[in-house]
Simulated scan of single mutants.
Amino acid sequence: MSNIPTINLYEKLTSLLGEIRSKKLFSGIGIFYNDHMFGIYKKGGFYLRAKGDLANQVKSIGAIPWELDGVPSNLKIRDYYLIPGDYLTDNDKSLILVKMIKASLQQIESEKLADTLERAKRIRNLPNMSLKYERLLGKIGIDTISKLREVGAADAYILVKSQGLFVTSHLFWKTYAALKNKYVELLTEKEKEDGLKEVNEKLNIAGFRAMKYKL
Rank of each mutant, 00 (worst) to 15 (best):
T116D: 13
K139S: 15
L148Y: 01
L137Q: 01
M129E: 01
P127V: 00
K147S: 04
L113P: 10
L117G: 09
D143Q: 02
I145V: 15
A120E: 03
Y133C: 00
T116H: 14
K112W: 10
N125Q: 01
L113N: 02
G152S: 12
K112S: 09
Y133W: 10
K139W: 03
I123E: 03
S130A: 07
K132W: 03
V151H: 06
R135E: 14
R149W: 07
K112F: 06
G138T: 00
L126M: 02
D115Y: 13
D115K: 15
E134G: 08
S130D: 02
L131N: 13
L131A: 12
N128E: 03
L131R: 14
I123W: 10
R124V: 10
E150A: 14
N128Q: 07
R122H: 03
I145C: 08
E150G: 02
L137Y: 00
T144N: 04
K121T: 08
T144F: 06
K112M: 13
L117K: 03
L148H: 00
D143W: 08
N128I: 05
L117D: 10
R135C: 00
E134I: 05
L137C: 09
R122L: 13
N128S: 04
M129N: 06
P127C: 06
E118I: 08
L126F: 06
A120Q: 11
E111H: 11
N128M: 00
G152P: 10
N128W: 01
E118M: 12
I142N: 05
M129A: 09
K139V: 04
R122D: 04
I142A: 00
E150V: 05
A114D: 10
K112Y: 12
T116S: 14
I140L: 02
S130C: 06
I123Y: 02
R122V: 01
K132S: 13
E150I: 04
L136V: 13
L113W: 03
I142E: 02
L126S: 03
R149Y: 13
D115V: 11
R124P: 05
I142G: 10
I140P: 04
R119Q: 08
K139D: 12
T116F: 14
L136E: 14
R122W: 07
D143P: 06
L148W: 00
L126C: 09
G141V: 08
D115R: 15
R124F: 08
I140G: 00
R122E: 11
N125S: 05
R135T: 13
G141I: 02
L136H: 12
A114R: 13
A120G: 12
L136D: 09
R149A: 08
E134K: 04
K147M: 10
A114C: 09
L148I: 08
R124L: 11
P127F: 01
I145K: 05
G138E: 01
L148N: 00
T116R: 15
I142Q: 09
T144G: 03
I145P: 06
Y133K: 11
K139A: 13
T116A: 14
K139Q: 14
E150L: 13
L113M: 09
